[in-house]
């Protein structure tokens, strides 16, 4: 059953799909950066994925021209190219794991839109109390 489905799929040329998938990814990177809410390191990781794509394309061309084989069958080239994805994913993972929730690009709106108590719960950050609230709490007038 699955084999039949795969057989039908095999008739399709995957190359245009891979090329086409680049467009939504570029839109993703654009909006992710524009949101200013991503941990900077994670954003770097997602961007670095494009380096992996570029290296993979170059490696595939070398595999074809130099060895007359598909990239996946030229182990050294294949592994070296895939290592770039490992680095990219590591940056994404680190970015989201290590970043403090309060440590985002300065956005004056963020502190007021976030639920109250969020800042207090975040550990390891110096008290990032919004100026107005902090003033009212620390020195009541």
């Amino acid at each position: 059953m699955t084999v039949v489905g795969l057989g039908a799929l095999a008739a399709v040329d995957p190359s245009p799909l891979f090329v086409l998938s680049l467009l939504p990814y570029l839109a993703f990177l654009r909006w992710a950066a524009a949101s200013k809410r991503f941990p900077p390191l994670a954003l770097r990781g997602f961007q670095f994925t494009l380096v992996f794509v570029a290296v993979t394309i170059a490696a595939a061309v070398v595999a074809e021209l130099r060895f007359g084989q598909q990239l996946a069958d030229v182990d050294r080239l294949h592994g070296s190219a895939e290592a770039f994805l490992t680095v990219a994913n590591l940056l994404v993972l680190w970015g989201f794991s290590r970043a403090e929730p309060g440590q985002e690009p300065p956005d004056p709106e963020a502190s007021t839109t976030g639920p109250s108590g969020e800042q207090v719960l975040s550990t390891g950050v110096e008290p990032a109390v919004p100026p107005e609230d902090g003033a009212s709490v620390l020195d009541p007038e």
Partner: peptide, 23 residues
């Protein structure tokens, strides 16, 4: 081909998710 299709689908999904995160 399935991998290429899911890559395309995944990137569209990522773009949509980033869109919802726009302030």
């Amino acid at each position: 081909v399935f991998q290429a299709g899911t890559t395309l689908l995944g990137n569209v999904a990522l773009a949509a998710a980033a869109w919802t995160l726009l302030p």
